[in-house]
């Protein structure tokens, strides 16, 4: 049985709990450990790329909605300078999101080559 992001066991996510106002947004959010477990399932079923996505997602569970939206925006074409992407990657690495950091570094290199930096 999974635990929610908040740590609450999924079995406690009931209508009664909702009515007693005991459920908050983090109680219906996925926990990074659950995403890691799903990544292992995806690997066993012939899709290591899906597993990698779940592991990047596990890193992103700790990021707020606005931060995820900002990260997405920064990776769109010609939104960021090389320096900004480098700083973003460093920030991600520092916040224990090494896979996302690697994604940003890889993007920065490709954008530099293909004229997609700001």
């Amino acid at each position: 049985m999974s635990n929610a992001y908040s740590g609450k066991p999924a079995a406690e996510l009931t209508i009664d709990a909702l009515v007693r106002d005991e459920l908050a947004a983090d109680d219906v959010r996925i926990h990074p450990d659950t995403l890691e477990a799903q990544a292992r399932v995806a690997e066993r079923h012939g899709n290591p790329q899906l597993a990698e996505n779940f592991r990047r997602a596990a890193e992103l569970t700790r990021f707020g909605e606005a931060e995820i939206l900002a990260l997405y925006e920064a990776l769109r074409p010609r939104r960021s300078t090389a320096g900004e992407l480098a700083a973003l990657a460093a920030d991600l690495a520092a916040r224990d999101a090494p896979r996302c950091a690697a994604l940003v570094r890889e993007a920065a290199a490709a954008y530099a080559r293909r004229g997609l930096l700001r």
């Binding site: 990047r56 992103l60 995820i68 997405y72 990776l75 769109r76 074409p77 996302c100 994604l103 490709a110």
Partner: peptide
């Protein structure tokens, strides 16, 4: 093609991040 991808205001990396963003919230 890359030109149409960029016209669509995205790159493979922005899409990869978006994909993970959705998964991060289940």
């Amino acid at each position: 093609t890359e030109s149409v991808f960029v016209d669509g205001d995205d790159t493979p990396w922005s899409k990869a991040l978006l994909t993970s963003g959705y998964a991060s919230r289940g």
